[in-house]
């Protein structure tokens, strides 16, 4: 039977996927960038600074989604003790941190021409900074706690506590008065973003997701090799 949790089987799959993503990535990136920078129209109010949104919004989504994944995997690992899940969370965390930071920095660059300030301690921005801190502590625990089973336990607690922050980020713009505008893309109902701008946004999101998948696979592969290497010594 093909066992999905068997590292040997996963390893082969990872190599196939990495090669596949590598083959299509740059073509897609080029298409997405040309739509984001050239073919999409400027906004009626913001002008060309709206283009910053094409990196800011996907980065923020990825930052949030990664943390949700980490939390869910931590919960499943806690319930069913599946070792691979903790390897996965460890591989996802740096990606989430990088994209959360990108979202914060590009948002700040966008804030200057739009709001008139680089920084505001409003609820959305503060909760994003807290998310970055959760990522940092998750990674720091894995780095500095030398006993692995202990590191997994403590970092799982961080991930589960941090899960509470995710809906706070999502709804911060609705619950409190913030400088940050409410979400333009709604899961239900019509989006308040024109299709000529939605298209490059989704394209860019897709490209960045592919990039994340690539990094994740590489990191996961590194983790598997690390484990195998450890087992080798035991032989």
């Amino acid at each position: 039977m093909f066992n999905l949790f068997n590292n040997s089987n996963i390893f082969g799959l990872i190599e196939v996927l990495i090669n596949f993503i590598n083959s299509i990535f740059f073509a897609l990136l080029l298409v997405a960038l040309s739509f984001a920078l050239i073919f999409s129209p400027p906004d009626y109010l913001q002008g060309d600074s709206v283009r910053i949104m094409y990196v800011h919004v996907p980065a923020a989504w990825i930052g949030l989604a990664s943390f949700t994944c980490i939390s869910i995997l931590s919960i499943l690992n806690f319930l069913f003790k599946i070792k691979n899940f903790s390897l996965m969370t460890k591989s996802i965390a740096p990606i989430g941190l990088v994209f959360t930071c990108i979202a914060i920095v590009t948002g700040s660059i966008w804030g200057q021409p739009t709001w008139g300030t680089f920084w505001a301690w409003d609820a959305r921005i503060t909760s994003m900074v807290i998310l970055a801190i959760f990522y940092l502590s998750f990674i720091a625990i894995h780095k500095f706690v030398s006993e692995e089973s202990k590191a997994i336990k403590i970092s799982s607690i961080v991930a589960i506590v941090g899960l509470v922050n995710v809906p706070i980020i999502k709804y911060s713009v609705e619950w409190w008065s913030t400088l940050h505008q409410p979400a333009s893309i709604k899961i239900t109902g019509t989006s308040s973003i024109h299709s000529s701008m939605l298209m490059p946004l989704l394209l860019m999101f897709f490209v960045l997701i592919l990039y994340c998948a690539l990094i994740f696979l590489m990191k996961y592969k590194t983790e598997i090799i690390r484990i195998k290497k450890k087992n080798l010594k035991r032989l």
Partner: peptide, 28 residues
């Protein structure tokens, strides 16, 4: 130039892809 927004737009895109590039290189 992007009607005066060039510096903001270009710096965000360059930061994003530079960080992604470095991150890819380190992982690899």
């Amino acid at each position: 130039q992007m009607n005066g927004y060039g510096i903001f737009v270009w710096s965000s895109f360059i930061i994003t892809f530079l960080v992604c590039g470095i991150f890819y290189y380190k992982t690899r």
